[in-house]
C-alpha cells in the first residue's frame, strides 16, 4: 500500500535532477542523458496515475513514449556525432552560432 503521492514526488525529484543536468552540464552527451531521465520521470508519473484509475491507457502511452524516445535517441546521437565532426568538441558552450 504505497500512496500515489510518493511516486509523484519521486517523479518530480527525478525530473528536476534531469532539468538540472540539462542546465549545468556542458557535455552534450550528458545533457542528452538528462533528457532521457526527464522522460523516465514523466513515464513513471503516467504509469502511477494509470494504476490508480485502473486504466491501461497510461501503460500504452508510456509504451509509445519509449518507442519515440528510441527514435529520438537514434537521431539525436547521430546529430551529436555530426556536430563533433565539424566542431571537434561536444562542449555546448563552444557553440554559439545562434547568437542574435
Amino acid at each position: 500500500m504505497i500512496p500515489v503521492d510518493y511516486y509523484i514526488i519521486l517523479s518530480a525529484i527525478l525530473f528536476t535532477i534531469g532539468v538540472l543536468g540539462v542546465l549545468i552540464r556542458r557535455n552534450a552527451l550528458i545533457i542528452f542523458m538528462s533528457i532521457e531521465l526527464m522522460l523516465n520521470a514523466a513515464n513513471l508519473a503516467i504509469v502511477a496515475f494509470g494504476s490508480v484509475i485502473q486504466n491501461f491507457s497510461g501503460q500504452i502511452f508510456v509504451f509509445f513514449v519509449i518507442a519515440v524516445a528510441a527514435a529520438e535517441v537514434a537521431v539525436g546521437l547521430a546529430l551529436i556525432v555530426e556536430i563533433f565532426r565539424t566542431k571537434k568538441t561536444i562542449d555546448v558552450d563552444q557553440m554559439s552560432s545562434m547568437k542574435g
Partner: peptide, 17 residues
Amino acid sequence: LRKVQNGFVRSYALSIL
C-alpha cells in the same frame, strides 16, 4: 535584451525553465 540572445543553448534552456 540583446544579451539574452547569446547563442548558448543552455541559457535558452534556463529561460524555458
